[in-house]
Amino acid sequence: MTDSPALAASASSRKLAEKPYDFSRKYWLFALPAVIVVLSVIVFPWLFTVFMSVNDWKIGGGMDFVGLDNFRTLIADERFRESLFITIYFTILAVIIPIVLGTVAALVFHREFPFRGLLRTIFVMPMMATPVAVALVWKMMFHPQLGVLNYLLSLVGISPSEWVFSTSTVIPTLVMVEVWHWTPLVMLILLGGLAGMPTEPYESAKIDGANSWQMFRFITLPLLWPYIMIALVIRTIDALKVFDIIFVISEGGPGTASETLNIFLYLQAFQFYKIGYSSAVVVIFFTIIVALSLVLLYVRQKTKWNA
């Protein structure tokens, strides 16, 4: 009983001491306008999509609750399953190749050499360029008779390719454009990783007589691994939702040979106006992306990868 005033005093003094640091409750006000915008143009569409996916929408405004019928039809839809397969095929190639090339590029641009800044800018340019604009140029380059690419192939004695005009070459060709477009992003992420690396392991490895491959394999690669994981997740998400270049270059064709999930989704929604059906596609798509984003966040926190 006697020490209670003392306790109270110490408690209140602690409160006083902590008070200048406790402003957290006021900060949400700063986020309020953004919260309103995010709720109306981002969260509302998400929820509305889920709502639409369990309804059958008729032109003219009517709708029926159909439960999971849209999802059942979707799973049975040959075209949807085919587009899922095409998306996986495209994604695997469009992830692995940029990761390998991006790693090489990061190692190259990590070194000092003349005109490094200029060459790095040129290398990064594809990623900044307007996708539609470069896709149109690629399309002209793919022309079977007059395209410059077949001419360049003929110079080194390779027979002309049909590029995006044949069902067997269309996906590898689109992957090539995607690789051209996004390898720079992988390079930038890994370059950031290389910049923060300690130099000591390399010095001691040199003293121990390690060659450059051993240094890469046993020092660089393990240290770079978290960054490669980040690049891997980002690339996977981006490759899954590729749209512009396929839409412009091949329009999902020939036939449906390059109809990825996103192209399928676009056609169902804005060509056939199957709103409920395409919303079901979005829900499936969204689930995959959220899962991958959470993986990314987990990796990001594990590596404390930040500015």
């Binding site: 939702k241 929604a269 919303s279 992306i289 984003s293």
Partner: peptide, 18 residues
């Protein structure tokens, strides 16, 4: 996390409801 997911979802998924 919400912001990150918003950055990651395909644009088409906002387009149908909007």
């Amino acid at each position: 996390v919400l912001i990150l997911i918003a950055r990651m979802t395909p644009a088409l998924s906002y387009l149908i409801p909007l």
